[in-house]
């Protein structure tokens, strides 16, 4: 049979299509900026420019791996080969029209990266990987279209701010004030850990607010064009979107009935409970 093509996400409206685009690894994410190595490493805050990677164990070639067919089938990443230590990167996303949202990051990473450990918690997404793999992924997260410099920030600590009101210039709130606006550009004056940088890092200009609304992957009342008051009171989302957002309920229903009796989810049998030959009140 033909190889199964993953569907990732429905394509009902613009926001769904944005999500689909982010998740599908076959879509190449548009590169918006290039951050110089020195600046990138200084905001990441793990190693200085030119410094060697720290290792947690000797390189795999010296270590010698045990005889195991699974190890032959799964090649290690570059970082794993060199025995790099595990490093962390934490990203925070504003709820105001950011091009990516926290939970979507975990899906993006699991679809696009190898050898990672990620988790979402309270408005932030943490990624832990071998140091040099993390730097590659960090570039993907900071330089491509999934990062708008005003709404997506690298914050290794004190991540609070994703749901706070934006500054007047559209910058996301930061209790440590790592970033500031210089004209239209965003400048990191502190590293992710909140340590002042000798050389502030200019990571460029954010996209306009209108463009941001188009790129957004977050459903909000105020990013749907020509929205009328009655639509807010009685929303009429795209049919396909409303159907697929019932996923959650459908899955929960199947978990419930499946854990009661696996046969109840066979061919969605639970939909017609009365037709099943069940005891009364089952």
């Amino acid at each position: 049979m033909a190889k199964y093509e993953r569907q990732y996400y429905n394509k009902g409206d613009q926001i769904s299509r944005n999500r689909q685009r982010i998740l599908d690894p076959k879509t190449k994410l548009e590169k918006l900026r290039t951050i110089p190595d020195e600046g990138f490493l200084s905001i990441l805050g793990h190693r200085n420019f030119g410094e060697a990677y720290k290792a947690v164990h000797p390189p795999l070639s010296e270590l010698g791996e045990p005889d195991d067919p699974m190890r032959d089938l799964v090649p290690p990443t570059e970082g794993a080969k060199a025995g790099d230590k595990m490093d962390t990167l934490v990203m925070t996303d504003s709820v105001y029209d950011a091009p990516i949202a926290v939970y979507l990051r975990a899906w993006l990473l699991h679809n696009r990266a190898r050898g990672l450990d990620t988790g979402c918690y309270s408005g932030r997404n943490t990624v832990e990987m071998r140091a040099r793999d993390l730097e590659d992924i960090g570039r993907l997260l900071l330089e491509t279209e999934v990062c708008d410099v005003r709404r997506n920030h690298l914050r290794q600590m004190t991540c609070t701010g994703h749901s706070c009101r934006l500054d007047q210039d559209g910058l996301m709130f930061d209790a440590v004030r790592r970033t500031k606006m210089e004209g239209t550009d965003v400048v990191y004056v502190k590293s992710g850990f909140g340590i002042s940088l000798d050389k502030p890092v200019n990571i460029g200009k954010g996209v306009s607010d209108e463009e941001l609304k188009k790129r957004s992957s977050i459903y909000r009342y105020d990013n749907i064009p020509n929205l009328l008051l009655e639509d807010v009171i009685d929303p009429k989302p795209d049919e396909e979107v409303s159907e697929t957002t019932q996923w959650g309920r459908r899955i929960m229903r199947q978990r419930l009935y499946g854990n009661l009796n696996p046969e109840l989810i066979k061919n969605d049998a639970y939909e017609n409970l009365e037709q099943l030959e069940l005891k009364p009140r089952y």
Binding site: M70, L73, A80, M86, D117
Partner: peptide, 19 residues
């Protein structure tokens, strides 16, 4: 096996199971 094998590090197993 695929994800943690690539990293040759066990710590992400919980994340992989979840996602």
């Amino acid at each position: 096996i695929v994800n943690q094998g690539a990293a040759r590090a066990a710590q992400g197993a919980g994340s992989t199971v979840l996602y």
